[in-house]
Computed example of a mutant assay.
Amino acid sequence: MAPQKVFDSADAYTTSITTLLPAHALMREIAIASLVAQTPERGTLGVVGCGPGDELVALAAAFPGWDIIAFEPAEAMARTATERLRVEGLAAQVRVIPRALRPADAPDWDAAICLMVTHFIAPGSARRDFWKTWARHLRPGAPWVLSEIVATTPKEREAWVRWARQQGASEVELKRLDARLAGDGFYVLPEHDTLLMAEQAGLLAPCTLLQVLGVRMWSGTRG
């Protein structure tokens, strides 16, 4: 379930993501607000795909009484995130595990978050297994938030690329973005397929938190 290599380094991710991903900062804020509203003062938060660590620093501030466990299979991202946490004095609260989430990993999370990861996982059994594994790690009734890129029409892809150009993305980045949105680099599925996998994994009543261009973010609870 390791993601494809889209960014050459953690630095490339940091400099490019705000010009390529609509509502990047807003997505994180909404996700955190949704989880904070549904969780107690203490617990364990599972994070799948933490990137270079910005998300973890924000989560640590929002959940000061929580233990945070993050899984990041991209080695460069995991190293950068670990160093960022050390510098911020958060190493005791937040642990980065440099690999993908596995079924045998310690379960019983009190909440979970996964932002912009699952469209890197091939459809079929690999994607279904991810949802089942993720759900298995949540306690019954625990909340979750997940976002991904869904299948887009040519007009939606054109609008996304046009937006990225206005944000300052390079022509090389724009060409790659268009190809990935069309399925050459991202495994994009219709929204209905994702919601069906969530239901089959035992996750109840997903609701849409954010919808912008081809990005969707949902929240729900484990049954």
Rank of each mutant, 00 (worst) to 15 (best):
L174E: 13
P64W: 01
R42S: 05
H119W: 12
D178T: 03
V47R: 12
S125T: 14
W144H: 13
A74Q: 03
L177E: 08
I113W: 05
Y13P: 10
V172R: 06
K155S: 15
K132M: 14
L177W: 03
T82W: 01
M77T: 05
D184R: 04
E75I: 03
E199M: 05
A61I: 00
M77V: 07
S147N: 09
L35G: 08
V161C: 11
P52I: 13
G65L: 03
L115Y: 08
D108I: 01
A74F: 04
R180L: 05
S9I: 03
V172T: 12
A78N: 10
R102L: 15
R127Y: 06
A142E: 04
G214C: 07
T80N: 01
V150R: 12
A60K: 04
G220K: 02
A37V: 03
R42W: 02
L26K: 02
S147K: 02
T152K: 09
G49P: 11
G124D: 15
A25K: 07
S147E: 13
A2M: 07
R95Y: 00
V47H: 12
R165Y: 04
S16P: 07
C114V: 08
R176H: 12
W163C: 15
M217A: 10
C50L: 13
V94M: 12
V188Q: 03
A78L: 11
R165C: 03
W66G: 09
W163F: 12
A100I: 00
S125A: 14
T118D: 15
L196F: 08
T14M: 06
F71T: 02
Y13F: 08
H24G: 09
S9Q: 00
E55W: 02
Y13K: 00
V150M: 11
P22T: 10
G223L: 09
T82C: 08
L85H: 00
D54Y: 08
R162P: 01
P52R: 11
E173Q: 05
L210I: 04
P143W: 00
Y187V: 01
A25T: 00
L85K: 00
G65A: 07
A151T: 05
F186Q: 14
S9F: 01
P140F: 15
R99G: 11
L174A: 11
I97D: 14
L209C: 08
T118R: 13
R162F: 00
V215D: 13
A2G: 12
D108R: 10
D11T: 13
V48P: 14
D105F: 06
G185C: 14
L35K: 03
V117C: 15
C207M: 10
A92W: 06
A60N: 09
T221R: 14
T133P: 05
E75S: 04
D178W: 02
I149M: 11
V48D: 15
Q166R: 01
T152N: 13
L138S: 11
T80S: 03
C50Y: 02
F7W: 06
V215K: 04
E75L: 05
A164E: 08
D110Q: 10
V212Q: 09
E148T: 07
P73H: 01
M217Y: 09
H192Y: 06
I17K: 04
Q166C: 04
P3F: 00
L189S: 07
V150Q: 10
A76I: 01
R180A: 08
Q200S: 10
A25S: 08
A78I: 10
Y13D: 10
F186I: 07
G185I: 07
G49E: 11
Q38S: 05
